[in-house]
Amino acid sequence: MTRNNEKIRPSPWPHRWAWLLACATFPLIWVGGLVTTNDAGMAFRDWLTSDGTFFLFYDWLSAAGDKFVEHGHRLLGALAGFLSLGLAIVTWRCESRGWVRQLSLLVLASVVLQAVLGGMRVVLDERVLALIHGCTGPLFFLLCVMMVVVTSRWWKSGVTLAEKGPAAKVFRLAVLCTGLAYLQLVVGAALRHSPRMTHESAGGVFQLAVYFHLVLAALIVAYVFLLAWKCFRHRLQRVTGLALLALVAMQICLGLGSWLVKYGMPSWATRLLGERTFVNHADDGLQAALVTSHVATGSLILAASLVIALRVARQLDYGLAKLPQVRFGQGETVS
C-alpha cells in the first residue's frame, strides 16, 4: 500500500468529523431505544413540527416525560444530520480517495432517509415503520463507524501482513459475527415492537422473535468467543476482540435483566430458582436503563465486529479501494 498516500499530506479533519458523528449517533441510537421502551414514538402526532412548532424551535427543556424523550431523539437526529452534512463537506474538500468521498455522501443520504423513515412512522402512526426505523438506525451507525475506520491514520498507513492464512479466517469470522449481530438486532426490534402491535399475528411474531433471539444469542456467543480467541492468538485486533467479548458477556446479562424486569421469570426458571421477591415498576429507571443499555450494547457489538472485519481486511490488503464499492457501489442509487 504505497500508492499515492505519501504525496499529499492527509488532512485529519475527515477523521475528526467522523468521530464526532459516531459519538453523536451512538446516543441517538439509545435514545431511540428509550423512545421504544417508553412507547413515546407518538408523543407528538406531527413531524418536522413538534406539536405545531417547527421542531428546532420547540421548547424542549420545558417538555416532560414522553415528549422530552421523543423530542430529544428528534434533536439528536438533527444534530447527526448536521454533522453528516459537515462530514460530507469536509471529506469532499480534504479527502483524496474517491470511494471515501462517496461513502461520506452515502452517510448523508442515509441520515436523511433514516430521518424521513422516522418521520413517516409518526405521520402515518405506523408501528411497522418504527420497527424498520429501529433496524436501519444501527446500519447508519455502522456507516459512521466505517467512516471513522477508513479515515484513520492507521488505515492510511496500513501495513499488510506477511502471513495471511489466520487473518483471512479472522476476517471471515468477523464478517459472520457482524452479520449475526445485525440479524440479532432485527429480531430484537421485532421482539420489542411486536408486543405493542394489536394484530392477532403479533403474538406469533413475538414468540418467533423470542426463540430466534435466543438461538442467535447462543450462536453469537460461540462465534464471538471463537473470534476473540483467534484475534488473541494471532495478535490481530486484540483490544477490539477482547472488547467485543466483554460487550457480548455484558449483553447477555443485560438481556436477561431486561426480560426479568419486564416480563418476570418464566415458569421453568421459577421452578429452578424460586420466585423473584421484587415487584417490577412500569416505566421506572431500572427498566429503562436495562432495556435501553441492551439496545445500545447491541449496536456496539455490531460496530466492534465491523471494526475487526474492516481492519483485518485492511491488513490483508483485500482490494481496499474496491471494498466499499463492492458493498455499496452496486445497489446504491442515491450518490
Binding site: R127, V128, L131, I132, C135, F171, R172, V175, G179, Y182, L183, V186, A190, H193, S194, M197, T198, H199, S201, A202, V205, Y318, G319, L323, V326, R327, Q330
Partner: peptide, 28 residues
C-alpha cells in the same frame, strides 16, 4: 471476494426477512 459475495447474499436475505416482517405486520 467470496466472503463478501456471501455477505451480500445474506444481507439480501435479511432484507427480505425485514420486508416479510413488515408485510406480516402490515395488516396491523
Amino acid at each position: 471476494y467470496p466472503t463478501l459475495n456471501k455477505l451480500e447474499a445474506f444481507t439480501k436475505l435479511q432484507g427480505l426477512c425485514v420486508l416479510a416482517v413488515v408485510l406480516a405486520a402490515g395488516c396491523d
